[in-house]
Simulated assay, not measured.
Amino acid sequence: MKIQPYIIYDSQIFDQQKFGGISRYFCEIISKLQFKYDIAVRYTENHYLSQTKIAKHRLYIPYFLSKQYTQKLYRKNQRLTKKMLQSPIPYLYHPTYYDPSFLKYTGNSPLVVTVHDMIYERFSNLIEGSEEIIRQKREIITKANRIIAISEYTKKDIIDILNIAPEKIDVIYHGTSLRPSQEHNLPLPEQYILFVGDRTFYKNFQALLEAFSIVHQTNKKIHLVCTGKPFSDSELQQISNYNIASNIIQIATKDKDLNELYSRALLFVYPSYYEGFGIPILEAYACNCPVALSNTTCFPEIAGDAGAFFNPYSINSIADTIINVISDKSKRTKLIKAGQERLKLYSWEKAARETENVYLKTLEEYIKLSSAGKTLI
């Protein structure tokens, strides 16, 4: 008899993120599923979910009310999650984050969890409150029937840190939906390198600022454009100390502007110490933007030969690599072509099909092990 999976996703990540890689990942995968599913979200400000029709329970609520009653609305989502997980209809549960409190409502239903990175575990001494999320992740991951890792590097981290059996872990790469842009709607300088995302410590932004101050000495016209939140006082002080304030731009952009930012940049720079995958690599490839990035963690695995690599712990290595790429048109052209080829390995459609295979494998294994397995089909 053919297995007909029914997948339940909870509200966790959609309660936590308006924008963010994990919620975007789930929206991309779920929107391409060929299986039956349900998402336990009634109220959310998540941008990606609001742009789709995949959350059938979602209700519109005015912004001023959502801000006033945020916690109350989150609790309503959680109650909806609990109600779904207590359903008599057989299902597979795929939590969107690591809160293990929902497990007491799932009964014997099989569980699949996606692990995006092990940053909390690797940098526990530098992240305040990491103990609780580490405990929750460990509980969810060890109880999961199968685990999806977003890179081979992340899989290795899971095995090394949590001693999980390798055969329980499937590696499924991300994709990107960005396309190159010919538009010039944003007020951008003629020559700039691009930094995308937040600037937490492992993103290594402070090193990039220092490296850029060296690059600026060789090219006074070059700018550094940064997306994300406004600069902090310490960042502004560092920028001032390096005398590069007139060549640094912080821009708050919407998702629809990202393709223009990448497409017009001379170079995208990704100096992180650690990433689980690195979607911006694919975004740059998709927008014909060359990439310079760290030679650590998952980056060599994801970028292959389509990146100019540097040592993220060496300011001179970062600066020299940037200068080498932006001053050599043929080098940029080669990196762009290599990026276009590399991008063929990744797509959200492929990720969705591989995720479906994990669901099927999970149910097949579960049925073999469960005396009540026939109720799952």
Rank of each mutant, 00 (worst) to 15 (best):
Y91V: 05
L92W: 12
L92E: 09
P95F: 08
P95Q: 09
P95D: 08
T96I: 09
T96E: 12
Y98S: 09
D99M: 08
P100Q: 09
S101V: 14
S101F: 14
F102L: 10
L103S: 11
K104Q: 13
Y105S: 00
T106K: 13
G107E: 02
S109G: 10
V112G: 06
V113M: 03
V113A: 12
V115N: 13
V115C: 15
V115E: 13
V115Y: 15
D117H: 02
M118I: 02
M118S: 03
E121N: 13
E121S: 13
R122S: 08
S124Q: 08
L126D: 07
L126Y: 09
L126E: 15
L126I: 04
I127S: 00
E128M: 10
G129W: 00
S130N: 12
S130T: 10
E131Y: 05
I133P: 02
I134C: 10
I134L: 11
R135Y: 10
Q136A: 15
K137Y: 07
K137R: 08
K137C: 03
R138D: 01
R138V: 02
R138N: 01
E139W: 05
E139G: 05
E139F: 06
E139D: 13
I140S: 03
I140F: 10
I140L: 09
I141G: 06
T142H: 09
N145F: 10
R146P: 03
A149I: 14
I150E: 09
I150M: 11
S151R: 10
S151A: 14
E152P: 00
E152T: 09
Y153V: 09
Y153R: 14
T154K: 14
T154M: 15
K155W: 04
K156D: 11
D157W: 05
D157R: 11
I158Y: 01
I158A: 01
I159K: 04
I159F: 06
I159P: 03
I161M: 04
A165L: 11
E167L: 03
K168N: 07
H174D: 05
G175T: 01
T176N: 05
S177D: 12
P180F: 04
S181F: 01
Q182T: 13
Q182P: 02
H184E: 14
H184V: 10
N185M: 01
N185F: 01
L186M: 13
P187S: 13
L188G: 12
P189G: 14
E190T: 15
Y192E: 15
Y192P: 02
I193Y: 12
V196H: 06
G197V: 04
D198Q: 06
T200L: 00
T200H: 04
F201P: 02
Y202E: 02
Y202P: 06
K203L: 01
N204L: 00
N204T: 00
Q206P: 10
Q206Y: 15
A207Y: 14
L208F: 06
E210T: 07
I214Q: 13
